[in-house]
Simulated scan of single mutants.
Amino acid sequence: MLSAIDSFLMDDRPRSLAGLKRGLTEFLWFGIKEARACLFVGLFFAAIFLMPRAGLFGIPRYDLLLVVAVAIQLWMVRVKLETWDELKAVCLFHAVGFALEAFKVSGNIQSWSYPDFGYTKIFGVPLFSGFMYAAIGSYIVQAWRLLDIRVRHHPPYWMATAIAVLIYVNFFTHHYIGDYRWYLAACALGLYSRSTVVFRPLDRDRRMPLMLGFVLTGFFIWMAENIGTFWGVWRYPNQLGAWSAVHISKWSSWSLLVIMTFTIVASLKHVKAKIHIAQD
């Protein structure tokens, strides 16, 4: 069923459209493809919304969310919505995310917390939380295929990898030696200043700066984070008494994390084939 839908969405035969009608039609198709690329995110967040805080059948909510996340991921591989290589990349996102979570909730840091009980909590972090990071990778993988994404003037891989590693390290070290996110953001801006993402909403290629894609994706993740904290899945210290919106500064953090995630996706063989490396 989904394969048939994807084939329909990716049908890029020329359409007789012009002017406002073309613009609105392409915008609609772009929105539909983006929604489809968020399949894992949508199903996972639906589980978060529907799952009672007390859990079900005596099983804590965090443990049930882990079961749901694993089931969704395996189902996507089984029906060939993701390949095994893509699953390996998603698992890497999970591991990277879990390591960051374990550090952030530790006693010395306490950037946020998971207040509910769960059998599958390790170092204070429920194992399902890594899937929230993996969901970003899953979205990029799905969007790459559905929108026929290509990248022009991508920086050399060693440079992209270096800035991605520094971004990740800064999430840890800023608690001890200062926050260098804006310096890293400036470096990333310079590194990707010529990079353009080419995508196909309908039947024609469209372009936009790759950095704009990072920032927009970071914004929507920040919005999702507000939803997650509102439902009490995790909480920042200032939200323990009463919920308040996640600080806007988190948008920049998520945008930088998207750069790191994109770099991992860009290492996949079939993705590399659609990336043009800048030579000068």
Rank of each mutant, 00 (worst) to 15 (best):
G55T: 01
W182D: 15
S7G: 07
K33D: 08
F199M: 11
W182L: 15
G232M: 12
W84C: 11
F93Y: 10
L184C: 07
S195F: 13
K80N: 15
V265R: 10
F117P: 01
F123R: 07
R78P: 06
L191E: 04
E26K: 00
L39C: 00
P14Y: 05
D85W: 05
A102N: 06
I5R: 13
L20G: 01
I5A: 15
V125W: 08
R207W: 06
I5E: 15
L81Y: 05
F40M: 04
V105S: 01
S106R: 09
P52A: 11
L64E: 15
A47C: 04
K21L: 02
Y133F: 07
H270N: 12
M159Q: 12
V258N: 13
L210R: 05
P60S: 06
G42K: 00
D11G: 03
G124S: 10
R200E: 15
L28W: 05
I177Q: 09
S193H: 07
F172A: 08
E86V: 07
L24G: 01
T229Q: 06
F214M: 02
L216F: 02
L65W: 00
L17H: 01
F131Q: 01
T196S: 05
I275P: 05
L65F: 04
V197D: 14
M76L: 06
F8K: 03
F230D: 02
V258A: 14
C38D: 01
L66S: 09
P115E: 07
Y133V: 01
T173M: 11
I32Y: 13
A35T: 02
F199D: 11
A185I: 13
I277E: 11
Y183L: 07
Y114T: 01
M211C: 08
K250F: 13
D280H: 07
L43V: 03
I163T: 13
M223W: 13
T83D: 11
L268N: 04
T83S: 10
